[in-house]
Design a protein around this nucleic acid. Sequence first.
RNA 1: GCCGCUAUCGUCUAACGGUUAGGACACAUGAUUCUCAAUCAUGUAAUCGGAGUUCGAUUCUCCGUAGCGGUACCA
Length: 553
Amino acid sequence: MRTVEENKLIADLLFSNVKESVEEILKRYPKRKLNEDQLILRFAPSPTGFVHIGSIYAALINEKLVRQSNGTFIFRAEDTDKEREIANGIEVLVEGIKGFDINIDEGALSFDKEIGEYGPYIQSKRVEIYKVFAKDLVSKGLAYPCFSTTEDLTAIRELQTEKGLRTGYYGEWAKWRDASVDEIKEQLEDGKPFAIRLYSKGNIENKINIKDLIKGGITLSENDMDSVLLKSDGLPTYHFAHPIDDTLMDISFVLRGDEWLPSQPLHMEIFSALGFDQLQYGHISPLMKLENGGKRKLSKRKDPEADVAYYIKEGYPIGAVKEYLFNIANSNFYDWRIQNPNEEVKEFELKLEKFNKAGALFDMTKLNDVCKEYISKLSSEELYKRTLSWAEEYNREIAQKLTNHRDYAINILNIEREGSKIRKDIAKYSDTLSLLEIFFDDMYEKVPKESLEMDKGLQKEILEDFLDVFYPGDAVDEWFGKIKNIATKRGFSTDYKEYEKEPKKFNGKVGDIAMVLRVAITGRKQAPDLYQIIQVMGESRVRERVKGYINSL
RNA sequence: GCCGCUAUCGUCUAACGGUUAGGACACAUGAUUCUCAAUCAUGUAAUCGGAGUUCGAUUCUCCGUAGCGGUACCA
């Protein structure tokens, strides 16, 4: 064991250029003047150039809780891993957050721009702060320099594995924890790199009981690892940055992924070494995916839907994706939605105690259903607006059509959007493409056409009948009456039941007449309401389509 | 290997220790004087296994099993 004086000496040796004191820093980050129920929560991902849907899920939950309590939502970038860091990583994150309509009250907006009084909000810009605390811990004998190399550590681990022991840098294995001042000096004079490690006082045999905000009561063992606090490049590990940042930023509690649960004892020990009050945690279960009958975590590499950019690119309505995510967080959301179909999401109260403890499967089918429901409630003007803004980014051809033919486009999108028969077949803005393309001749030309089994001569007769009687001013009943007249004239039944009884008596049923028309006009066997399509398309285009089809027979 | 978390229809889940174990999505069938979609009706489908506590266990306890996570100078 080193003496108090020796520890001070080592601290000065290690951090000769650190002049600031812990007290001075603490003074720079005063406690916030807020009511106790106003939550200050943070979202603190690392910028890897990829925003995982699970990250957005966590961000969403934190922000929602903040909004409900009229608190403050902080975005902090944890860019302390140089290996994984990529250029523009922070911008990609901010874009993802904004893409989901999540508002940052405090934090980084880009690498060079921040808002808020408790910054910097980018960890690589906070290194001086971490060093002050590290120096303080060393001088108190609560941390120490470690000169073990990667090779040393690997050797230790192999030996431990061989002996069937717990791996790691702890107890007797922590060879630098009690090194003498001379030994340390020697390494320093040789210019050897060092990491700062926690001098753990914990005992693995001791159990600690924790109350997790989401998981409830859990039992963990005390930490006894001399974990790295500052890496040899001078940057902090997550374990060190987290207690300092969340304390200085005056966070209410931490909601994070449950992969952190096992390291909570470590964090608790660091909090107390730093002299900080303990923080409460809520550990969120991860979003899973079903594959080959088993559950697994949504993977950045294997699953396109793990990337939030996917939803933006496909044109998923963000409001609906958020609703789905809230539904995973609090399953009573869905019941609330059924009871309050037109209420805004902000009226729903998200509750920590309603969170599910197990990992939920991210179900694309269910998401699609939520999206269809959501889009079916939009007015045609609103859908037009949103589709256009999506298309401007991801489908220029459609964007141009929408811009140049605004009213026509709105009418198209309005088909079966009013009245008692509301379509629910559009889940995302890109789905409107297959509807729109029918209505623009140059696009329609490129669409593959479906054909009918029916005798071509008969088809031609039916369509010529139609051209004779077609009048766009007809009301639905008049229009359909004409279709029925054609049916009768050409030996088709107008009564489905009657036709079912004796199908041989007829050439077909009235539906078959409509089918010929549908294929002639839309090129498809399946399409929305024919009458409405015709109304929107207008007389000349309908006649052209029919004539064109007749000629192609 | 060790440590921890979790466990109800295919999926998301509901059920003061007492329910014919409920709902939603998906699926299937039927209805709907144009197809598809929508809508409506109906149906199939679950308490991981084993002990224990109890008059009674999906619910509490223990043991197993499985899934997930941790076991880094990554977060």
